[in-house]
Amino acid sequence: MRYYGGLFFISAAVLLAATKSPDIFTVAAVAACALMAALSSTRHAVWSAIGGALLIGASLALQSALSYRCTDCIKADLLIMAGVIYLAVTESGGMKKSLRVMAAVATAMLAASALLHYPVSTGFSQEEARGGRISQFISVANDGEGALLDTAVRPALFFSPSCGACRSVLEKLAAADPEGNGWAPVLTGGSPGEGRDLLDSNGYLGVMSWSEWDAAVPALIITRDGQTRALYGQEEILRAVRGDSS
């Protein structure tokens, strides 16, 4: 039965190999997943579970250290986590209790990282937002005065000071375009003072607007070729603002 746990590690390796560029971190992670899969079908399956938990910890630590939010990495971490949990549950030896505690701790770490650093929902679903509750022109407030923001001219980035993923996106956008010539930050949630402080801390020098937004953040509202879309996820947002994709 233990070899079933190895399927989760193999799935994680395949996912990383198919979606990530072959840099040193990806190659190391794929090799480690393959090793954990091989160990899971032997009498050393305990080490497979321990190694899986260490892989998750290393992944989260690297993402935090590099200020890089990788959704594909998190998907792989979830598959590895499933393998760790499976092996911990099926373990019947003396390490049973320790493995289950370890699996619980790793699960808590992964959940905390997802809540702190990845898009969070503040209301209706992303599908509803994509389905027509967004438009090219967004009503915003600037210093107490109403205005219309044209997302065909400048894409609008909805953000919240309490969102860890927003901080990472803002840092990179402000570094690339501190004047906000190609994007417009729009605060939703939190006080204007908190939003301004966050932008200032990342070197943003342009105007901040605020408006209501009931979907996940960070979200980039962008209009290209007459079509208005909501984009989620750091990599997709950065590509769109840079003009790598529409």
Rank of each mutant, 00 (worst) to 15 (best):
I138N: 13
S48F: 03
A65F: 04
A76M: 00
A53R: 03
E145G: 02
W47A: 02
D143I: 06
S67Y: 12
R43D: 14
I50Y: 13
A76V: 05
P155H: 14
S64L: 05
A76F: 04
G57C: 05
L60A: 01
T42Y: 04
S125Q: 11
A129K: 04
V140N: 01
I74M: 15
S48M: 03
L62C: 06
S121N: 09
Y86T: 06
A45S: 08
D72C: 12
H44S: 10
L60K: 04
L62P: 00
A61M: 12
C163R: 05
G94T: 03
S67I: 02
F159R: 02
E128N: 03
D72Q: 12
H117E: 04
K97I: 14
A103P: 00
K96E: 12
C163H: 02
S113E: 15
Y118S: 03
S139H: 06
L116E: 09
S162C: 00
M36Y: 05
A106K: 04
L110Y: 06
V46C: 10
A156W: 12
L54V: 15
L87G: 00
M102W: 11
T71E: 15
L149S: 05
V140M: 08
A76W: 05
M95H: 07
V120Y: 07
A88H: 06
L62D: 08
K75C: 11
H117G: 01
V140S: 03
G132A: 07
C73S: 07
M109K: 06
C70K: 09
L87K: 08
T151L: 04
A152L: 00
L148V: 10
S48P: 07
L99C: 04
I138Y: 13
R69A: 07
S162K: 13
G83A: 13
D150Q: 07
H44W: 10
L39D: 01
F137D: 01
S48K: 05
S98Y: 11
M109H: 14
A129I: 11
T107Y: 09
M36T: 03
G83K: 09
